[in-house]
């Protein structure tokens, strides 16, 4: 896969230490992601260099008591690729973020490895499912949840339980890339259900390009 230009990110978090740490992690990724802008307010993602960054890394709890879900919705509606990075592991909020069009939801307990993968995936318009989000999807009891195959559910649960794709592939006797394919399929199913968002449509278009699904599957 060719990267025509350097990938860039904007970090929205109310803690300077977190912004600095995330910027440091992103710079060590491969490919490295440069931080176009960062700040404690979501405005930084709408103005200056932040407005054109490939990825928005958004802390859901920006000082206020309520999670910044409306900010997330506005960003997703504008087609921005958002990775939610939250202090709290709350299944319901995680599912709500996916519904609103976030490409990934990570808890801050999940380290650099997952953040880097999520940011790199989001920068190329793909979804990333870290273990905590896999747990939230596996435990999803909502009535309008998409129907997953038995294998997909198994992959979700094993990934949630072990945090290691190698371990999952050993347990289930499949290759790590098949594990990834299952996870991506699951996310496509979620993108096709519920309300529409430009980022979800872009995710589906990307999946068709990647050959994960056919046009007929839509």
């Amino acid at each position: 896969m060719a990267h025509p230009a350097e990938l860039s990110a904007v970090i929205v978090d109310d803690h300077p230490a977190v912004r600095a740490g995330v910027a440091q992690w992103l710079s060590t990724g491969s490919p490295p992601i440069t931080v176009a802008a960062s700040g404690e307010d979501v405005r930084v993602a709408w103005t200056g260099e932040g407005a054109t960054a490939d990825v928005v890394i958004l802390d859901l709890h920006l000082g206020g008591p309520a999670p910044a879900l409306s900010e997330l919705r506005r960003l997703a509606e504008a087609g921005r690729r958002v990775v939610v990075y939250s202090m709290r592991a709350d299944d319901e909020i995680a599912l709500q973020c996916l519904e609103l069009g976030a490409l990934s939801y990570l808890t801050k307990a999940e380290g650099a490895e997952h953040l880097l993968e999520a940011a790199a995936a989001a920068a190329s318009g793909r979804a990333y499912t870290p273990p905590s989000l896999a747990g939230a999807l596996a435990g999803d009891r909502s009535t309008d949840r998409p129907v997953l195959s038995a294998r997909e559910t198994e992959v979700l649960i094993e990934w949630f339980q072990s945090e290691s794709k190698d371990f999952v592939s050993r347990r289930l006797g499949i290759s790590p890339s098949t594990v990834n394919t299952h996870l991506e399929h699951i996310r496509i199913k979620y993108a096709m259900s519920g309300r529409e968002a430009p980022t979800k449509a872009a995710l589906l278009a990307r999946a068709i390009q990647d050959g994960l699904i056919g046009v007929d599957d839509l």
Partner: peptide, 8 residues
Amino acid sequence: VSFAVSGA
């Protein structure tokens, strides 16, 4: 220990 809980 990495500890995670999912579901109500």
